[in-house]
Nucleic acid binder design. Structure first.
Ligand SMILES: [Zn+2]
Ligand SMILES: [Zn+2]
Ligand SMILES: [Zn+2]
Ligand SMILES: [Zn+2]
Lengths: 166, 166
DNA sequence: GATGTTACGTTATAATATAACAATATAGCA
DNA sequence: TGCTATATTGTTATATTATAACGTAACATC
């Protein structure tokens, strides 16, 4: 039971991450094919780099990796790919980190909550309907129409609490 | 009933904002006196500028206002004041806007949620224990120790829904 | 008043993101 | 096929937000 319901757990050190990557890329390819979207080589590669691990990664980190691969790349190169991936729900932006992470449920454009470990840098994506309903209730009381939610919780994950130096 | 329980409402156009300002500044002065903190002229002025309205304001906006007042100011000037005000719970940073807004319950270092109107730019600060408890429950399930919460909801406030052009 | 500490001034630079326009690739069609 | 409109990427410059580093001034305590 290493990979079942992984999207509701904090990524563990021993999980089969290659499965995460191939699954995410496959889902992205399927989704884009289905939606008539062009997952170009660049966009595919950026998505792959983002999925290298579960740590949100900065735009300029990605940019550096692209240039090290020999590709001609400038800030707009990476930001345009990020925009495409964001617009189509394939990645999330972690506002509190100015960083980007792969989405566990691509294409849904769903609300998500993130728990981010300050020790190992990993982020867990949750989709807790309860949080959404409480926010919706507050919004209703205020007469407020919700457009975008940002729920990001920083702290220390269970794994890092056990290990002093991750 | 214009100003009662204002902290749980979206700031209305007709509310007596001068009361907000004087109350906030008075509370800040009292708090700093009580805690042995130095609310210097600069810090006091920055706090006052932030409380000019209920719209989160950017650091460089504040900086420009200071320089227009004839004060010698550079980015560190304003960021150091912001740091002081943040550390002592007198203001909040709105991560999704890179902007700063006065705190309704200064000194408590409490968790807060923000509802931010994309039309008028105003932000309402809530302190919904329910949201906190749901987050705490998720954290417990994950074995996650919460350090910092960011809950920011963007959308359209009731007032702006009624008026097409605020 | 000497001394240690805190706050502020000043210059430079880091980190993140976008504007504007040119070149290229792709898709749809004559 | 070749032509044309559109989408994508390349390129250069710049905007926006934030911090590093170091010096000076104010303040407090003795
Ligand atoms: Zn994984
Ligand atoms: Zn961790
Ligand atoms: Zn007010
Ligand atoms: Zn509004």
């Amino acid at each position: 039971m290493n990979s079942s319901k992984r999207s509701e757990q904090f990524p563990t050190a021993d999980h089969d991450h290659q499965t995460c990557v191939t699954h995410a890329l496959q889902e992205a390819e399927d989704f884009c094919l289905q939606q008539g979207l062009r997952l170009t080589e660049l966009r595919h590669r950026v998505l792959e780099l983002i999925w290298a691990n579960h740590q949100p990664v900065g735009a300029y980190d990605l940019l550096e990796q692209l240039t090290h691969e020999g590709r001609k790349a400038a800030p707009p190169t990476i930001y345009r790919s990020l925009d495409f991936l964001l617009e189509n729900g394939l990645i999330h932006r972690i506002t509190s980190l100015n960083a980007y992470v792969g989405c566990n449920h691509p294409g849904l454009n769903h609300a998500a909550q993130f728990f981010i470990c300050e020790a190992c840098g990993q982020a867990a994506e949750l989709d807790d309907a309860k949080i959404e309903s409480v926010i919706a209730r507050d919004a209703k009381r205020l007469g407020f129409t919700v457009e975008k939610r940002t729920v990001e919780v920083a702290g220390i994950c269970a794994h890092c609490k056990q290990r002093p130096n991750p």
